[in-house]
């Protein structure tokens, strides 16, 4: 199924929660609202003519003002793909979790939470995954400042510190 048709199917089912469709780019994407991700995901996976059973990738993004989550979906049966995008503000980064629909999302959402601080509502076990549990901040945000040390282990190199000092 082409991206356009998928968009139509979604638009019919979810109306206002489907915000935007862009077919001009390399890989067409559909923008959806962050608090409906779970329902839309369920729909995409369970409808007989869509059957997106494979979540290829779930990435978090820092878009400057906002944080983005991008879902790359694939259907093993129909061999079609679609990209879903959603955006949330940095103050209230709440996105509904899709970990119950595709378990791939479990760890990927934890990673996005860990590195970008996106809060996945209804995630079964939202913990840091790559960084230590007591790490502060979310390093993949563009405005992230690494701490000087962690439990006495220096994190920033000496020359980097000088540079930072010079910039200030």
């Amino acid at each position: 199924m082409e991206a356009k048709e998928i968009y139509q199917r979604l638009k019919d089912a979810f109306q206002d929660d489907i915000l935007e469709f862009n077919a001009e780019v390399l890989q067409p994407f559909i923008k959806i609202s962050p608090d409906k991700t779970e329902e839309i995901a369920q729909f995409l996976r369970d409808e007989d003519d869509l059957e997106f059973d494979y979540l290829m990738c779930l990435s978090g993004l820092d878009l400057g003002e906002n944080l983005g989550v991008v879902y790359h979906l694939y259907s093993m049966k129909f061999n079609h793909k679609i990209v879903l995008k959603t955006e949330v503000s940095k103050e209230q980064p709440n996105v509904n979790s899709v970990a119950d629909i595709w378990r791939t999302a479990d760890w990927h959402e934890r990673e996005a939470y860990d590195l970008l601080g996106i809060n996945f509502v209804n995630h079964p076990d939202l913990r840091r995954i790559l960084l230590p549990d007591d790490w502060e901040g979310h390093p993949l945000r563009k405005d992230y400042q690494p701490p000087k040390s962690w439990h006495g282990i220096p994190v920033t190199l000496a020359n980097e510190e000088e540079q930072d000092g010079a910039n200030e």
């Binding site: 970990a99 119950d100 378990r103 479990d106 209804n122 995630h123 079964p124 076990d125 939202l126 913990r127």
Partner: peptide, 12 residues
């Protein structure tokens, strides 16, 4: 995160 356990076969 006090959430319900959605897929118990992976939780312990």
């Amino acid at each position: 995160m006090a959430q319900t356990n959605n897929f118990p076969e992976t939780r312990f």
